[in-house]
Design a protein around this nucleic acid. Structure first.
Lengths: 180, 180
DNA sequence: TTCAATTGAAATAAAGTTGTCTCATGTCTC
DNA sequence: GAGACATGAGACAACTTTATTTCAATTGAA
């Protein structure tokens, strides 16, 4: 029930570098002992499950105000990119650790996440920021892929941290906008 | 020395679903026994290494004619997307299995791959298909990310196989093109 | 200070994976 | 058909990781 954000952050970082890293590595990154890690999450599966759910919840909390707020169109997309790129480690985890979707709660939360992103894409279409004939699914996928790409490029030193969200927005926006 | 494309294909498919899958799963997917797998690749590391090198080589063979051919601009990018999306499983592997880059031959081939993609982006800029102020690194990253995203979307049933390369091209092209 | 709770370190058993080996079976050539 | 060859199945030891347990040290509150 405890959030344990610091511990889960450490897990996300380690697992982004090495999916399947031993629990010892995660404990070390978090600065705690292996035994203590087991006291908070009994099994490896429990830890991955918690990380998945917390990652999706973080995304939701970041996205919710942007979906109900009054910024629209390009500005809304820019705000979303700003908020999402720093969460790249969590995205990476969600995409590489497929076993977590065996859990019905996790897969339910993931479906909800996709639905939420779908609504965002639809709202951008309604604002004439995206072309109406672009499949919503592709909008979601492209956003996901570019956010993840931008994040890992920053991690590996190919891209400046501040440039990343701008490039994501520019690529998506001008890329999918209706021709003038 | 044998290509063993079928076996490596099976490995790529299994590892795309589950990075760190046991060799038994790979052998089963390839329809051979575990012992036979070991006869062809003595260790797991040998197999991953071969898969990485062969994946990069396949990409090179696919890209080479497109880089020297006479199609330019948007058509060239479309041809690249057509050729690359089906190789998505290999991309996924190259991006998730970080340990392979310990091998100097693999990391050298990967650098060459990035350089090749960089040349492609530059040639598209020269053709006025992409805006000159777009960082070449971002062009490479976005292409990589969108190809991978399109491939996995097809795999998971979110996208029609024939639509995928078109959407990649459209997203990148109209997305990064100079404003008219 | 004293007591209870939490922690890290270490030992341990259990489980899974890897790599080696043997052997029986099937295939191919001669 | 005989013999050479490759294969799959299975047994096996070595290794790694997981999960549990114990114990001494640390922390915090009464």
């Amino acid at each position: 029930m405890t959030p344990d954000t610091a511990l889960l952050n450490a897990a996300a970082v380690v697992l982004a570098r090495n999916p399947g890293a031993p629990l010892a590595d995660i404990a070390a990154e978090a600065g705690i002992g292996r035994a203590t890690l087991h006291r908070r999450y009994a099994t490896r599966t429990d830890l991955l499950r918690a990380l998945a759910l917390e990652s999706l919840e973080q995304t939701e909390q970041v996205l919710a105000p942007l979906l109900t707020g009054d910024t629209r169109g390009a500005d809304r997309l820019a705000a979303v990119a700003d908020a999402l790129v720093p969460l790249g480690a969590r995205f990476h985890f969600l995409m590489s650790e497929i076993a977590i979707y065996d859990d019905p709660e996790v897969s339910g939360a993931y479906e909800a996440h996709l639905t939420r992103l779908g609504s965002l894409i639809e709202s951008l279409k309604a604002d004439d920021a995206l072309a109406p004939d672009v499949p919503t699914a592709w909008g979601v996928i492209a956003l996901d892929a570019l956010v993840w790409g931008a994040w890992s490029a920053v991690e590996e030193g190919y891209l400046a941290r501040r440039d990343a969200p701008v490039l994501v927005t520019r690529t998506l926006l001008t890329g999918l906008s209706p021709s003038p």
